[in-house]
Design a protein around this nucleic acid. Structure first.
Lengths: 331, 331
DNA sequence: TTGTATGCGTTATCAG
DNA sequence: CTGATAACGCATACAA
């Protein structure tokens, strides 16, 4: 059962319009052509409902109008948003997106890269976890949140500045003793600078602080131990908390409340990311908001600019603070 | 600045292996070929790191190994999960996914369809909102949650059964007076059957019920009015609530709590979808869980089966109940 | 300016 | 079973 009735091709259009094949091609690609010819071709295109065959075009021209986006998954809201905005930015420029999920698997990241290279994508935007990722030569490559070297442009939020901002906010909001919770990969990723910025901000504000840096993983036990120790078993309990991600903040808030303390009355909490519950409802927590849409837009415009030479290797985009019910902000 | 060093082609491999072009093609495609030839070709492929050019293959074979997934966005968790699982199901079968966002725009849905048809995708999986969507002939088309006619296979959860299950659960959990909150499009979509199932379930259990069916939209005012009326301004207040989506349940719970009532002590709430906070944390609420991974798997396997004839037009997948803290389930 | 011819990398058809 | 050779649909250098 073959439904395939042969598709309309350029030569069909040419015959219909009574012009040569090359002329049709020129009209399609917006090259200069006589006005009367152009109209005849356009009429034929309309009549036959002609559309170019992207495979043929790609085969001939060696570009696919496709950019690969590689990230762990789409279940984590930050990745979901990034996917959305990258797609929009690409679409606006007439490009398609080839979405690939790495599931945090380093080998898979590498395999995906060679897969998309095989598929002749015109560029790659990647948010990866392999510190020794091999970057293919000859295809534009941009990372998000991962600085892999001066030859690979990286776009990220101003993580350091965001950490500082969080410290300053907690100080302004009346905190006297704070802590930073960074559930962290050992990797030196850009987001790890959040803690450094926070430390810097605390010192500038003269605010005493603790640091908790449990290993990444599903267990929240280290978190619980830390919070228990610094909220209940001490004479100088914390009254402010900066978490390196909204996800961590959410977990911490759960633990704090289960300990019988109140947020924000007893402990104020600021997260990082600016996520919303269920995608578009209220904020998860007070947070340093990442400009995800700008990240996407920037990454796309860099990967599409055929001139990588003059490009700053690390591009930091400004973040902002947004109250989200876990801090005592004035109305 | 042209980095493009010409890619290695089949004829390069043929020359290297000292065999004919056609033989290489056969080896690549797993067609029968002499053992000694096969080894020579494989060695050459390895040595030259040859990879097929998908554009050329597609041009010749008219197959792109690509399936389009059309849905509103990826910000709503249900869509994000669907994207994830569809991608996994496709990848397992050696297919790529072309992801398209409609933003709930009916015209855009239609445009996207012709766009992906132009791109010669091998099939389309769509979750759409245009009741008069025109389905392209000649390309396999499967919908999710939208029954568009017997000629278009639709895969959905057992929405009716889920509604019944919710009613039965609320009855079991001791509710005496319940309501169904369905924020609904006017469209006759499959999810609208949740309410019907709930009504059926309530009647079977002899449980008195109310129905609230506000129009779709950002405003929660109709919800508030309904809840205020049936929780505070009445002698027979509700003690159970079924919401047609976790999102609605989440909003309702917020309203109920802001009225000074407790969930689940005063009002038990069951949602629909089975979403988790921030993607993978605790459940949003007690809920009827959709088998999203099965939905994806089923949709993919149908769209890829070249035999549409024997296919049931509407395929319902079983749902299940999962407590999520907004009901008084026994431990 | 317009038309013609060639080749991109594969697959598929046929003749050895 | 193997190896030439002809399309596939388009872009483009080149000829008219």
């Amino acid at each position: 059962m073959k439904n395939e009735k042969r598709a309309v091709t350029m030569s069909d259009v040419a015959r219909e319009a009574g012009v040569a094949l090359g002329t049709v091609s020129k009209v399609i690609n917006g090259l200069p052509v006589g006005e009367s010819y152009r109209r005849k071709v356009e009429a034929a295109v309309e009549k036959l409902d002609y559309r170019v065959n992207p495979s043929a075009k790609a085969l001939k021209s060696n570009h696919t109008s496709t950019i690969a986006l590689i990230l762990p998954n789409t279940i984590i809201p930050f990745f979901a948003l990034l996917t959305q905005y990258v797609n929009m930015a690409l679409e606006r420029r007439g490009y398609k997106m080839m979405l690939c999920f790495s599931e945090y698997d380093r080998d898979r990241e590498q395999e995906l890269i060679s897969m998309v290279v095989q598929n002749r994508v015109d560029g790659i935007i990647a948010l990866t976890y392999n510190p020794r990722l091999e970057i293919p030569k000859g295809v534009p490559f941009v990372t998000i949140d991962r600085f892999l070297g001066v030859s690979v442009p990286c776009v990220a939020s101003d993580n350091f500045g965001g950490g500082q901002l969080a410290a300053r906010k907690l100080a302004e909001l009346g905190c006297r003793r704070v802590a930073c919770l960074q559930v962290g990969s050992v990797l030196t990723t850009e987001p790890n600078k959040r803690k450094d910025g926070f430390v810097s901000g605390c010192m500038a504000a003269g605010l005493p602080f603790e640091i908790c840096n449990p290993p990444d993983g599903a267990s929240t036990t280290p978190l619980e131990i830390f919070l228990h120790r610094h909220l209940l078993e001490t004479d100088h309990p914390l009254d402010g908390l900066f978490c390196s991600a909204d996800l961590v903040a959410h977990q911490a808030i759960g633990i704090i409340r289960s300990m019988g303390l109140r947020v924000p009355e007893d402990v104020q909490v600021i997260g990082f990311d600016g996520l919303r519950i269920l995608g578009d409802q209220e904020p998860v927590c007070s947070s340093i908001v990442q400009p995800i849409s700008d990240l996407a837009e920037t990454a796309v415009s860099i990967v599409l600019s055929n001139d990588f030479t003059g490009c700053t290797p690390l591009i930091c985009l400004p973040v902002s603070y947004r109250p989200g019910g876990t801090t005592k902000d004035p109305a």
